[in-house]
Write a protein that binds this DNA or RNA. Structure first.
Lengths: 228, 228
DNA sequence: CAAGGGTATTAGGCACGCCTAAGGATTAGG
DNA sequence: CCTAATCCTTAGGCGTGCCTAATACCCTTG
């Protein structure tokens, strides 16, 4: 006579959905088990297992075909966006209200996002003035899941040197985030890109002298857009 | 080669320690399995099971003897006080910074207390000005576990009618909390107790006309102290 | 177009925290 | 002091989410 919850709705499920959401990208590509396993830090077998659970039951959270990867179902997408909303609101909250250094907001938000109530969500949203972006420059999904597309590209996609504006920085690597911060590379900052591919990416906040050379492996963590 | 964590430190362990802490009271009485089971909403067998885990290992968290109940060990007490600190700081935070109604702070704090970092703890503590009491009037343990004894008694312990000050109200029953709030019964408020035992407890905030009659079963939820 | 390498899935197990059912301990009453 | 009711513990099981090892699949390459 206990609450029948089958599965669904646990912390772990949240993590899978969020990871699939992130890996799908805006092109909604099918995500492979291995990619998920790597991102989540679990064995591939565990991923297969979970995907089968997520894909079964009434209103499955993912569309899954053996050996062909996985995509979020509409229900899964809805849930993923909720969690992303929680996560990014929390990041904004930690950053702006509790004065966290930017490189620490991600981990804390990652833990708390699963447990805050709708009331909490609404209260911090209100307190922050219904923000549209988190401190990394990522768009915060609206309550109904709407989220404006970001028109931006990663540094690695850039062909020509020039002046751009920092759109967003990845929240995945806190050490890198700290370095970027030290160089003034934060969302909204104008930057000059001098060298491109091959030699690594040299970027510099226009107003500053200090230049930063990013190897290709890290350059993917910075997204930029053209100045207007 | 995964992190060996044996047990210890999980959400569930936290809940047990906190429950034991609450049931021990200031007299540090041994707590029975059934009392724990009732409080935690689990089967008695589950309690026994968990107690045996908590009592084993190096640096056990509880002192436990078959059939004779359980008490917190020094390590368990330390951990319990940490959690209580988290809980009460969160309550104060939700109440004061996020404008929660008092009857809703408990449940939210109950979920979040397990997951906030030391940084989070410190930040809200600072933001609140290092408060010493939560919104229910309960003392917030200091970082080192120190906690001043509350000198107060429950309404049910009162023998004579008279004027008192509300010391604290229980956070366990949100419906009651709402009623108490409606009658102005909040920590620090002066109250008059007119009827005692037998007939139920009639209390009234001095400045207000509305009187409140509490059956014995609810009167234990209000602690009072004499006016200076 | 067969084979091999990489990827994905199945099979079998483990720790956790819970459950029910059954048996044992304790303590109150007669 | 012994019996009965109550309380507590043991035994055995389940779901979740993870693991490793073994197997199956896919697909590219020679």
């Amino acid at each position: 006579m206990t609450t029948r919850r089958v599965n669904s709705n646990t912390e772990s499920v949240d993590d899978y959905l969020k990871a699939i959401f992130a890996l799908e990208g805006s092109e909604r590509e099918r995500v492979t088990s291995t990619a998920l396993a790597k991102r989540l830090g679990v064995a591939p077998a565990s991923v297969t297992n979970m995907l089968q659970k997520l894909a079964s039951g009434s209103s499955p959270l993912v569309e899954y075909e053996l050996h062909r990867g996985v995509r979020l179902s509409p229900a899964g997408m809805r849930r993923a966006l909720e969690i992303v909303r929680h996560h990014r609101l929390l990041e904004a909250f930690l950053y702006q209200i509790l004065d966290y250094p930017i490189e620490e907001v991600h981990d804390e938000a990652e833990r708390l996002e699963h447990f805050i109530s709708e009331r909490f969500e609404d209260r911090i949203d209100a307190k922050l003035g219904r923000p549209r972006f988190d401190p990394h420059g990522h768009c915060i999904p609206a309550l109904d899941g709407r989220m404006s597309k970001q028109i931006s590209q990663t540094l690695t996609e850039i062909e020509e040197a020039g002046t751009y504006v920092v759109d967003s920085v990845s929240d995945q690597d806190s050490a890198l985030l700290k370095r970027l911060k030290a160089h003034g590379i934060t969302p909204g900052a104008p930057i000059e890109v001098t060298n491109t591919p091959r030699e690594g990416f040299v970027i510099r906040v226009s107003t500053t002298a200090k230049a930063l050379r990013l190897p290709r492996s890290l350059a993917g963590a910075v997204r930029i857009r053209s100045t207007r």
